[in-house]
Simulated scan of single mutants.
Amino acid sequence: MTVAARTPTGRRMQLAVLLRRLREQARLTQGDAGRSVWPSSSAASVQNKIARLESGDAGIKLEDLRSLLAVYGVQDAAVTDLALQLQSGLSQRGRWTGFRAVHDDATRRYIDLEEDATLIRLVAAEVVPEILQSPSYLRAEHPATRADAPELQAKLARQRTVLLRPDPAQFYAVLSESCVRRTQGDDAVLREQVAHLISLSRRPHITIQLVPFRPRGPVRPIARTGLLERFALLRLTTPEVPGKLPEHLDYAFTKSGADLTFSDHVRHYETLWTEATAAALTPAETRAFLTTVLNELD
Score class of each variant (00 low, 15 high):
69 L>G: 00
67 S>D: 15
100 R>M: 09
115 E>H: 11
69 L>W: 01
78 A>C: 09
81 D>W: 03
122 L>D: 12
115 E>R: 15
139 R>D: 12
61 K>G: 04
77 A>V: 12
122 L>K: 13
85 Q>H: 09
79 V>K: 06
105 D>P: 13
144 A>P: 04
132 L>Q: 04
96 W>D: 07
124 A>T: 14
69 L>P: 00
63 E>C: 00
130 E>M: 10
135 P>W: 03
64 D>N: 14
137 Y>T: 11
90 L>S: 02
145 T>H: 14
75 Q>T: 13
129 P>F: 12
136 S>L: 12
135 P>S: 11
117 A>M: 02
80 T>H: 08
138 L>H: 14
121 R>Y: 00
127 V>N: 09
122 L>Q: 14
87 Q>P: 08
72 Y>L: 00
67 S>N: 14
60 I>W: 09
125 A>W: 04
84 L>H: 05
98 G>H: 14
121 R>A: 01
80 T>G: 08
101 A>C: 06
147 A>Q: 10
145 T>P: 05
108 R>A: 05
76 D>C: 02
128 V>I: 13
132 L>V: 12
77 A>N: 10
118 T>L: 10
105 D>H: 12
107 T>D: 03
89 G>I: 02
137 Y>F: 12
110 Y>G: 06
147 A>T: 10
112 D>C: 06
80 T>V: 10
91 S>Y: 05
112 D>G: 03
141 E>F: 04
94 G>Q: 03
117 A>F: 03
109 R>C: 07
104 D>L: 10
